[in-house]
Design a protein around this nucleic acid. Structure first.
Length: 572
RNA sequence: CGGGGAGUGGCGUAGUUGGCAACGCACGUGCUUUGGGAGCACGAGAUCGUGGGUUCGAGUCCCACCUCCCCGACCA
């Protein structure tokens, strides 16, 4: 490809809206352009990288027997009603009417369609197990897009669906996908860790997220370096030892003016935060006020809390008015004397005696509050976040906390969607059985962004060879002075073209100064930079520079021709 | 949706007490230049996010709205 004809433009200045390196570099180097919040065009370079990433995913899916297909972006709303998700999912599901006034949906995932296809096509146990996948555009009207390609509203996802006879079959498919994901991310140059995760809107019994460790990650991971335990903090259950036992003491009201935070309360009373209980208030999607009680030295984990109280339609922080309507005082709140609220108590609080808790009266707290005696929990469960240094639930060593970006996930779905679609098979026993499904997603664009996060330096992108849009970047200098330069560049360019798509190189044939060309070559990030100039010819050939290391050497023309035709060495 | 910030040629910005919209880069033409973001000359390009209002006069002041970014509640 000749750079003079490439539909792209590099930017000298950083766009102000781009904060993450991947966002900044993909914009500056001309891989993507933004159309709206969370909506991006892939320019030719970006499309090439995306295709290369897809190809890696495709090869690993095919390796475990996945069959590529393609399902529609637009679905009749009825199939989402049948699965219950039309109502269960909020505004992130895109909805519209067609010209006949029928409700339609922009797909955010494809379990419903797979279920319907299974009901149509699979009749016998002989047709299973089976896996299908596709690369398809998803629309998810996220509350907030961020980080360029990291979190967008429209994106291409590889979603795969395993279809098995029974739970044991699902377990095997799940393990196969797990292995495929490990190989996929390794080939993409992404260090990932698979963490146990919440099942969320998918339902089902087990799920893992593949996390790329990055400080800008939106998820917090609980990791044990000693034994390899890894879980999303949303679900990480770390054991908390029993507090020292004490006899319950009589309740005692104390004036604590101006102590609306645990820090100020603990300081005022001269006790540690672990001697206090704090209340947090949430309103569920099904309009229940939840009062969550955790110890002052912990924080509420909304995922655990939502699961514990079986919140339908999610949860949001409650408003001051909602809290007061239940008879509680924000800042001095506790379940004592409260009405019309679901009281969820952390099991550590339930085991801790004589805590300080709010008196539901401004400026007052109670000492010696005991769960069960002074108020009655509706639910007692682990509803707090794991913290750095907590004991690993497997080996007991201290855990560490890290941020991660979810680059893929795997879910054991079960029969939720096949039940909704009536997808059954006739078993050897002559009876109808529901098909057991799993679902497996990888966001292509997010992976592109994460690869840049992992592979860049202060000059630009450094693509791993596996996903680079071109095998090499050819810089020709001084063609006007020495006709051999253009001649050789033409020859290398043609040679690469004939060698096939994976060997294609990008030739900067523009009439630009050497500085501009070198700078752009480093910004664009092809793994190899070839320089042909009167100087390189005088030195005996073509200069070959490895982008990642900066190692450069001048090689005889024949040697460079062989590299271009047969492939460059892959990294160390 | 809550909090914070920003909208001025393609990109990055300046714009004073309200008084001719400016600068760098990029872009076009010509000449020079060619191993690390070249030089000179000429040139094109903006209804200053939108709609109201105040005023002789609004990029600037007031009101409303829209969009985008960042931090929180959701997910690949």
């Amino acid at each position: 490809m000749r750079l003079s004809h490439l539909f792209f433009a590099t930017l000298r200045d950083d766009p102000t809206e781009a904060e993450m390196p991947s966002h900044r570099l993909l914009l500056r180097a001309g891989y993507v352009r933004q159309l709206g919040s969370g909506i991006y065009s892939l320019l030719p370079l970006g499309k090439k990288v995306s295709d290369r990433v897809e190809q890696v995913i495709r090869e690993e899916q095919d390796r475990i027997g996945g069959q590529e297909m393609e399902m529609p972006v637009v679905h009749p709303a009825d199939i989402w009603r049948a699965s219950g998700r039309y109502d269960a999912i909020g505004p992130e599901l895109g909805r519209f009417k067609d010209r006949n006034g029928r409700d339609m949906v922009l797909a955010m995932t494809h379990e419903e369609v797979v279920g319907i296809l299974l009901a149509d096509i699979v009749k016998s146990y002989r047709q299973l197990p089976m896996q299908v996948y596709h690369f398809q555009t998803k629309w998810r009207d996220e509350p907030r897009a961020r980080g360029g390609l990291i979190r967008v509203r429209e994106f291409v996802m590889k979603d795969a669906y395993s279809c098995d006879l029974d739970q044991a079959g699902l377990d095997a498919s799940y393990d196969a996908q797990h292995g495929a994901y490990v190989r996929t991310f390794e080939r993409l140059g992404l260090d990932t860790v698979a963490v146990a995760s919440d099942v969320g809107i998918m339902g089902g019994s087990q799920a893992h997220e593949f996390m790329f460790l990055n400080p800008a990650g939106e998820d917090v991971l609980v990791l044990c370096e000693a034994c390899g335990y890894a879980a999303n903090r949303q679900v990480a259950a770390v054991p908390r030892p029993d507090p020292t036992p004490e006899e319950p003491l009589p309740l005692e009201e104390v004036a604590t003016p101006g102590t609306t935070t645990i820090a100020s309360l603990a300081e005022f009373l001269g006790v540690g935060p672990e001697r206090t209980a704090k209340a947090a208030f949430f309103m569920t999607g099904d309009a229940r006020l939840v009062t969550a009680i955790v110890r002052g030295d912990h924080e509420v984990n909304e995922t655990k809390l939502g699961n514990a109280v079986k919140a339908i339609g999610g949860m949001r922080p409650a408003t001051v008015d909602e809290i007061k309507a239940a008879g509680m005082e924000p800042g001095y709140g506790s379940p004592m004397g409260a009405r019309d609220t679901v009281v969820a108590v952390d099991d550590l609080v339930a085991r801790s005696a004589n805590l300080v808790a709010g008196a539901n009266r401004e400026g007052f707290h109670y000492r010696n509050v005991n769960s069960g005696r002074d108020y009655t929990p509706d639910v007692t469960a682990d509803i707090t976040n794991a913290q750095e240094g907590d004991a690993c639930p497997v080996c007991g060593k201290p855990v560490i906390l890290r941020n991660g970006i979810e680059v893929g996930n795997i879910f054991k779905l079960g029969t939720k969607f096949t039940d909704a679609a009536g997808a059954t098979y006739l078993g050897e026993d002559g009876q109808a059985h529901p098909i057991v499904m799993g679902s497996y997603g990888i966001g292509v664009g997010r992976n592109v962004a994460c690869i840049v996060e992992a592979h860049h330096d202060d000059k630009g992108i450094v693509w791993p060879a596996e996903v680079a849009p071109y095998a090499a970047h050819l810089v020709s200098i001084g063609g006007a002075k020495d006709p051999r330069v253009t001649e050789i560049a033409e020859r290398l360019h043609a040679l690469a073209q004939d060698a096939g798509p994976r060997h294609e190189i990008l030739w900067d044939d523009r009439d630009e100064s050497p500085g501009v060309k070198f700078t752009d070559a480093e910004l664009l990030g092809m793994p190899w930079i070839l320089t042909v100039s009167p100087r390189s010819l005088a030195a005996g050939g073509v200069e070959v520079t490895e982008r990642a290391t900066g190692d450069r050497s001048t090689r005889p023309l024949e040697e460079v021709e062989a590299l271009v035709a047969n492939g460059f060495p892959t990294g160390p």
